[in-house]
Design a protein around this nucleic acid. Sequence first.
DNA 1: AAGCCAATAATTGATGTATATCAATTATCC
DNA 2: GGATAATTGATATACATCAATTATTGGCTT
Lengths: 243, 243
Amino acid sequence: MTHINTDNCNKSGKLHGEGCKSCIKEHRNNIFSPLSQEEIDFLIDKKRQIVYNVGETITKQNTASTSVICINEGLAKFYVESANGKNVIVRIAKAGDFISGGGLFNGNFQHFSVSAITKVKCCMIDSANLTSIFGKNNEFAIKLLRNHTKQNNFLLKKLVDHTQKYMPGRVADTLLYLKNEIFNSNEFSVPLTRQELAEMSNMTKESFVRILHQFKDSKYINTKGNTISILDESSLVSISENG
Amino acid sequence: MTHINTDNCNKSGKLHGEGCKSCIKEHRNNIFSPLSQEEIDFLIDKKRQIVYNVGETITKQNTASTSVICINEGLAKFYVESANGKNVIVRIAKAGDFISGGGLFNGNFQHFSVSAITKVKCCMIDSANLTSIFGKNNEFAIKLLRNHTKQNNFLLKKLVDHTQKYMPGRVADTLLYLKNEIFNSNEFSVPLTRQELAEMSNMTKESFVRILHQFKDSKYINTKGNTISILDESSLVSISENG
DNA sequence: AAGCCAATAATTGATGTATATCAATTATCC
DNA sequence: GGATAATTGATATACATCAATTATTGGCTT
């Protein structure tokens, strides 16, 4: 199922007619921006670009891993599988995103799973190679730390939001997150089931559907299948903030 | 209220008859262990040791900060203040702990507050000085990253625990955390109010008291004022795991 | 390519329950 | 001895669970 593009990416890869070098350089906010060409070549030499189809697992919780993932194209869900079988989707990873946490930094195993919700192209980079660059380029180490700190603050906020807000506030948060962080558009088609949207919002699918219906009745949003349109963002923001 | 020990710590400080150098070197798991003597001296030169009394705020959410905190002695609560006035205590910081997140890595402001629950002695180290060492010592950068990753995984687990477990499971978690991570003893006197213990467990103080009472009735624990004794750890572990 | 079927997803309603809130009393501390 | 914290009880409610129906999707056949 998993296609491994074994082309070494120094030359143009098969996919998209562009090599992996560009995948590393092109994304805005890119964590690799402080790297020199040599350093990029060093990482690129050791890496593979992999294609995952919808539903495939990219990283599995509780398995060992020494790689970090750089998403090149597509969307993936970053989630935690809990003992009782109820998943918590923490965030959606998109092109340019960098997923670390396991591998070298952590010592042993992944504390989360990642799976493709659209076709995903991503690079796996060995964390030992990443850290070997720190000595030559401390801007890069700072970028990585900043990335981790950002993720930390994100989790801190999510912890509070999920434990303190009522359901409408959490649904509003999920909708605004999708609009502002993932699709950058007032209308978007979500490649997620209601169950998954509920797992992002910390509630049952039935509750999610009910709140969504209320929002539709109130003309805050419109929905048609998996397409959601944000009609009144300021009301959603207010619901999100109120609680 | 806040006493600033302005002795530069190259020489023996007034407190405890030991200098701050030792504060950096003595703690196990120490993030500073990869540093050479010169590098330690460099950080120490620029740092102050500060004493906080019970209740004092060490770091305030939403204020700017470019320092990281290294706890030298005492206990502090690391918490988030939410919009509706309900705090979430994320963890207890103890001697040897390192609190970053704001400052340089983050760009602008603190996403959490830290305050002393016992008398606390701590060092404030400018994050720019920390990061300037990365180029010379990449083991140190890796240690810092590992620290952040650990915190990340901790938050991920807490997010799941607080959203999926019932109250008894969360109270068991809090008790086991205090026993195993903070006091390393079956009997301990907690410098926290029931309100604060409830804020660690994501529930109201009334609910916390009720569950504690149930645990006492079941002979899992004993309580006398602020002193808690763990009598049957395996039962608590089972309650924690069951949910 | 059109059409049908089975499986899965989405929706809506009725009911149960974990937990918060409100209120009152008792204990503890400076 | 007055303020604050802890405890206990009675009540309210947000949300989950259970159950049934309707819609949608993907695969197979012709």
